[in-house]
Amino acid sequence: MNTLPVQIAFYSLAALTLISAAYVVRARSIIHAGFWLLPCFVGVAGLFATLQAHFFFVAQLLIYAGAILVLILFALMLTRDAMSLHVPLKSHLGIWAGLISAGLGISASLVLARQSWSVTTAHPAGPARQAEALGEALIGLYAVPFEVASLLLLSALIGAVVLAKVERAPAPEPPPLADTLPEPEETRKEPVGVE
């Protein structure tokens, strides 16, 4: 396995992910910000591919780049100021947000650097076996957490329906259509002298 091309791919995909993530934050229009998520998700999928996690690569494309991004864009398009290109980018909470992100970043880097990661040269299971092994793990060893997670998603689904369902007053009777109106008097004359 030659590592240089893989490393080049890894760093360029990481750069793609980070740069597009920065554009998501900096874009002047929220719709553009939504579309900048696409290279971000594709970059993450590519990172999975360079790590030979093929199933995650495809799942990331299918679920994030395909479904979730579309839902996000739908929600954005239905918001009030979606058309405006001048959403203010300044926020009075900027300092706090910066502090919290910096704290998180520093602590995460410290943990990453201090931890002694177990490094192995053994390859993961063969690519064709991976999806199979994952499936077996999900219905075998991790069956209970898997089912609990799906139960959580189901309750979220039902909750969303309940929240969105508004009891409306019954719609008013629609005005009668033109051809159901009683005809005006003068047009209802009997034809005279036609015999």
Partner: peptide, 11 residues
């Protein structure tokens, strides 16, 4: 893969 790529065409 084919299914997931064809979904992204929606974007």
């Amino acid at each position: 893969f084919a299914l997931s790529i064809s979904t992204t065409g929606a974007l």
